[in-house]
Each structure stands twice: as structure tokens, then as C-alpha cells.
Nucleic acid binder design. Structure first.
Lengths: 220, 220
DNA sequence: CTTTATTTTTAGCCATACCTAAAGTCAAAA
DNA sequence: TTTTGACTTTAGGTATGGCTAAAAATAAAG
């Protein structure tokens, strides 16, 4: 069964909102995620229910099915592989890739994705540090902590951000806190939760708790 | 102004059928090229006329405008650049690229195309030997002859094919007559126009006039 | 100069995917 | 237990882009 572009986008949103199928999702949540109206969502949910990619009970929200998860993961896989391509091969900045990847993820060709994956050397994480599902939908995830949860003198490597708005990404680029950067916690201010960190053993930056809580690190 | 995918496909078909805007094109021709019905074409022509990418007089065919040409060439440029990418980077065979490039050509991002062009080292021809328009729509074309128009002992290099059906491309692959191959005419049979040619100084193949007339060569 | 055949267009219908406005459902507060 | 308010769905409309069937225009033949 082939899904339309709109259906793929809904499924992806539902997958994310349900945190991988764990939580039930509401019509309103989907509407605000998709930036459209609840009435439009109701319509689509009926269709997705008929295609059995979600289990839909009117007025009681929905659960994504196993089939639905497979489609969602396939789309996420394509999105993230294209992001790797754009950053590594075409030298896009990581705040420029999202919009283009949103389009590229809907290209239908399993051969294309196989070849792209091989060409990129089977990457396991995208430029934002998010895991790339394999062709069976399996995801290799790493335990990650927010910077504000770390203690003084602990070290680690930045692997992902929770807020991927262009403004936030540009800010990170400016201060040099890119994905892959090695960091060390130099100081924490108990009063407001702000932290001082050393980036790549050379640059000291200061960030509010608000910023720190949006940056994810693997400790080492 | 942004064109829809359908509009881009119509413009591309019109551009090709009119041989770059030289000839006027009929509704029926477009319908058979697009594999849909004349009634659907009439509808679309009205819209394209309103957007001023064609000049449309009911019952009298149409001419593509300068603006329309720019859009068509832009789409053709994207299609051919993606074909180069698929063949050179992802190791697609040249008979596998068309369908995927048909999808990729509709991705909207001028940055993407600039970067892709640079990444591929500003190619001037696609894997079928067709010229790639530059970002201003300029095309560098080479004088080309069909193999059946060449004389005994003349030499040249295969640069394009006129029939790009998958079946024909597979046949060419089988006999080793790929784009870029150097050839020499060994013999011509006046009776049926068939020819015997030497490919890359090592392989002798025999082809009917029908096949020979579909292969284009730059003489040298 | 008609008649006929071909081509093209119009009219009206279908599906997708969005919208607004109105009606229906559920749950929490009175 | 009833009422209120938030959430959700339905009804009916819009635009795109296809279709068939029928009407209209052009061109070709008698």
C-alpha cells in the first residue's frame, strides 16, 4: 500500500507526538503540530484508520499500529539520511537542512535509499544527533542527559538538541556548541541553574538553564 | 511565482514537443505525451495561459513564452543534474535513473541545486549525453549526427540516444555501446542501411539502421 | 458550399486535502 | 444531576487535477 505525502506527514507527526507509539494522541495536538485545523485532522484520522495505520476511536484519540510505526520509521529514516547527505556532501549548515529534507523524505524509491545509505557509509545518527532507523525500523539509541543535569567536572560529547528551531541552531553555531563537540562542566550556579562549560578544551561559554536543558550529551 | 508539480510537468512536455519553443504544439500531442486525456489538457492550458507561461489561443494550439521557457529549462536542469548524481555517485545504471529523477526534479530549493551542481563539478551533459542548462537556462549543445549518417572509416564518440526506453538502454549496455564509447564505422550495407562498427578499438558489433538512427555521435 | 471527420472545448463528476461554521460528545464543576 | 466548557466531529464549501460524455469549432472532402 502506498501512502500519499499528506498521509506520511500525519503519520510522522503522530509517531513523534506519541513518543514512538507509547502515548495516545489527541486531534488538537496533531492540528497544532501540523499547523492546520482540528476539522482537517478528524478527516485524515478517519482515512488513516481505514488504512489501518492507526487505531482510531472517535472522541477517544488514537494509537499508532505496528504497520503505522513501520511507515513512520521509514519516513524518518529517509528524512535523516537526506539530512546527513545535505550536511556532509553538500555542505549545508545544520539549520538549513530541515525544509529541504521535508521534501526529499517523500521521494519513493527503495533502491535510492539503499544506495544513499551505502554512499553515506551507513550512518547511525543524523547531523542533529538523532538516530537513523535501519531498513527494518530498528533504532539504536544512546542514553543521553541534558547539560543542566550534569555535575561540575563531568565531561561528555554533544549529540543532539531538543529545540531544533533555526534561531536556536544559529545560536549554537555562534558559540561553537556543534554536534560532536566535547564539553566539560566548569561551574554551575545553583541560584538559576545556569552553567559554565568548556568546549573542545579551548573555549569557555556560559549558558542559561533554559539553553542547557535543550542540549543533550553522552557522558564520558 | 511558484508552479505546481503538474504545471512543471506540462511545461516540460510542451518545451520538448515544441523543440525548445520553435514549433506550436497541439492539445492531442500533449495528452499523448502526458498519458492523459485531451479534456484534462484543455483545462491545464487555460491555467498555464493565465499564468502567462504559454500563449494560448483556443482551438489554435499554443506557443511557450520566454517566461515559460525559463521554468521548463529550470526543471530540465534539475532533472539532468539529479541523473548525473544518481549515476556517478549512487551507481545507478542509466536505465534506472529516469523515474527517480522525475520525482527529484520537483524539489524546490535553489540552494540545493547550486550545491549539487558544484558537488558534481558543474557537469555539462547528463548520463544520456543531453546538455544540462546552466542556472540562466543557457544550453551548450554540440553538433551531433546519427550513426547511420556516417561513412565508412569515420570515427566519433557516442554522446546521446534518441530513444531512451529502458529496453533500448539495456540493449546498448549489452552490446557495450555506452555514452562516451569511441566508435569507428567498419562497413555499411547499402541494401538495408545496417552498419558494422568497432567499439573502443576492441569490440565489433552489428546494428540495424533502426538502432543506428537512434544513437547520436560527435565526429572526430 | 455543404457535409463529414477530426480536434478541441465545455459541462459535470470524482478524489485529495484543506477550510469555516455548526452540531455533537465528554468530563468536570456547580 | 444538571450545566458548562473544552474538544471533536460533521456538513458543506474551495482548489487542484484527473475523468467521461456531449457540444462546438476547424479542416478536409464531396
Amino acid at each position: 500500500m502506498e501512502l500519499t505525502i499528506a498521509e506520511e506527514n500525519y503519520l510522522k507527526a503522530i509517531y513523534h507526538l506519541s513518543e514512538g507509539g507509547k502515548k495516545s494522541v489527541s486531534t488538537n495536538d496533531i492540528a497544532s503540530e501540523m499547523k492546520n485545523k482540528p476539522a482537517s485532522v478528524s478527516d485524515m484520522l478517519r482515512k488513516l484508520g481505514e488504512k489501518e495505520v492507526i487505531e482510531y476511536r472517535k472522541y477517544y484519540g488514537l494509537q499508532i499500529t505496528e504497520i503505522g510505526k513501520r511507515y513512520a520509521l521509514q519516513t524518518i529514516r529517509k528524512h535523516r539520511l537526506w539530512e546527513v547527505f545535505l550536511v556532509e556532501k553538500l555542505n549545508f549548515a545544520w539549520d538549513e537542512v530541515h525544509e529541504v529534507a521535508e521534501q526529499l523524505e517523500h521521494i519513493h524509491s527503495s533502491l535510492l535509499i539503499q544506495r544513499l545509505d551505502a554512499y553515506l557509509n551507513y550512518p547511525k545518527f543524523d547531523p542533529h544527533g538523532d538516530p537513523i532507523p535501519d531498513e527494518f525500523g530498528d533504532v539504536r539509541s544512546r542514553p543521553r542527559v541534558q547539560i543542566n543535569e550534569m555535575e561540575i567536572n563531568q565531561t561528555g560529547q554533544i549529540v543532539a538538541v531538543e529545540d531544533s528551531s533555526a534561531a536556536f541552531l544559529r545560536y549554537l553555531d555562534k558559540v561553537g556548541a556543534y554536534i560532536g563537540a566535547r564539553i566539560k562542566i566548569l561551574d554551575k550556579v545553583e541560584f538559576d541553574g545556569s552553567v559554565e562549560i568548556l568546549v573542545d578544551q579551548k573555549k569557555t561559554i556560559f549558558m542559561s538553564k533554559d539553553v542547557a536543558s535543550n542540549i543533550l550529551v553522552i557522558q564520558s
